[in-house]
């Protein structure tokens, strides 16, 4: 039953992703000019003339002399038939290689941020809900609002500034210069950890704040419900009661928005990582979009779309498992 549900959902995903890929490709093409324009402009401002011969050669090389829909078909067919995402104009390398370089780190960051957000916001949300209108609640809510309103990149800039002022270390990348090219070692991990943590923290804080508010609201909602009173009337202790019932119920909407949360983390990561110059997907995708490095940008966006779809499927499955009233996307009554 579960298996057939999953298979059905996966099959549904395919036309959806195809549609998305078309939209992605069209949107990337929309800004005027193309990769060549950026390339030429760059060369000119560096003091080199770009001759007509060079432009013609580049056009042919990047396939930019073909009509747009043909470029799209080439690309999508390459992905489907050979897993070939095309070549990046900027890097002169297969897109797959570039993505592979950065995807593991990105997934690690996003995953850790998700865990961080949950670990922080759930206890605080619970505290806030059970101690409503107390001093603690106001303090936490205040910090929450601040966190929600301060943009992640601003916080990142602030962190860079403060760290530089106090320690002279300028955070601009996941590793310091010495370890950048070194092979993986314990030292490299230790070098990376504080920067990794800072990145997760900054990305997480904005999302944490939002989640605390939602969780608090959900908790307050659930705390007033009858079954909580029943449990209390049975003599269940407050703490146990809290976690077994309202928390469990309040988590459910969080799971159902897992897909959105994850997508939000991936895109939120872009700007913060850009400020910190981290070696994650976000900054690379940003540059790819700006320079109209078509295949690289398109592939990134496609992967994000896949992640959102997969996240959505995952959250539906989880929901079915956790909430017995929902079985495979339908409410059972």
């Amino acid at each position: 039953m579960l298996l057939s549900y999953i298979v059905k959902r996966l099959l549904q995903m395919i036309p959806l992703l195809l549609c998305i890929s078309v939209i992605i490709f069209v949107v990337i093409q929309l800004p005027p000019g193309d990769y060549l324009t950026t390339y030429i402009r760059q060369k000119e401002s560096a003091g080199t003339q770009v001759g007509a011969d060079e432009i013609a050669a580049l056009k042919a090389r990047y396939g930019l002399d073909k009509p747009v829909y043909l470029q799209y078909v080439d690309w999508i067919w390459g992905i489907i038939s050979r897993g070939d995402f095309g070549n990046s104009f900027q890097w002169d390398m297969p897109v797959a290689v570039k993505i592979q370089e950065r995807l593991p780190m990105t997934l690690a960051v996003s995953f850790m941020t998700l865990i961080f957000v949950w670990l922080v916001s759930i206890p605080i949300g619970i505290y806030s809900a059970t101690h409503q209108y107390s001093v603690g609640d106001y303090i936490v809510s205040g910090i929450g609002f601040l966190g929600m309103s301060v943009p992640g990149f601003l916080l990142a800039i602030f962190v860079i500034y403060e760290v530089y002022n106090h320690t002279g270390i300028a955070i601009s990348g996941m590793f310091s210069y010495e370890y950048q090219m070194a092979p993986w070692s314990w030292g490299k991990v230790m070098d990376m950890l504080p920067r990794f943590a800072v990145l997760v923290l900054v990305i997480g804080i904005a999302n944490t704040a939002g989640m605390i508010r939602t969780f608090r609201a959900m908790m307050l909602d659930e705390l007033g419900k009858q079954y909580v009173t029943t449990a209390r009337a049975k003599g269940v202790g407050e703490k146990r009661l809290l976690f077994k019932y309202p928390v469990r119920m309040a988590i459910i909407p969080q799971i159902s928005t897992l897909a959105g949360t994850f997508a939000g983390l991936v895109s939120g990561e872009t700007i913060v990582s850009k400020v910190f110059n981290m070696e994650t997907c976000g900054p690379m995708m940003y540059t790819a979009l700006i320079t109209q490095d078509m295949y690289l940008a398109g592939s990134f966006l496609l992967i994000t779309a896949v992640m959102v779809c997969a996240g959505s499927l995952l959250s539906d499955i989880l929901l079915s498992l956790i909430d017995p009233r929902i079985r495979f996307g339908k409410v059972v009554e």
Binding site: I160, Y164, G168, I169, A170, I171, S172, G173, Y177, Q180, M181, S273, K274, V275, F276, N277, P283, M284, Y286, T287
Partner: peptide, 20 residues
């Protein structure tokens, strides 16, 4: 010689200030 890629000019500024 090494050449490190920075995603934008602000990141380069940070590296310059950091003596890299």
């Amino acid at each position: 010689m090494t050449s490190t890629y920075c995603v934008d000019k602000e990141a380069i500024a940070v590296k310059i200030l950091g003596g890299e």
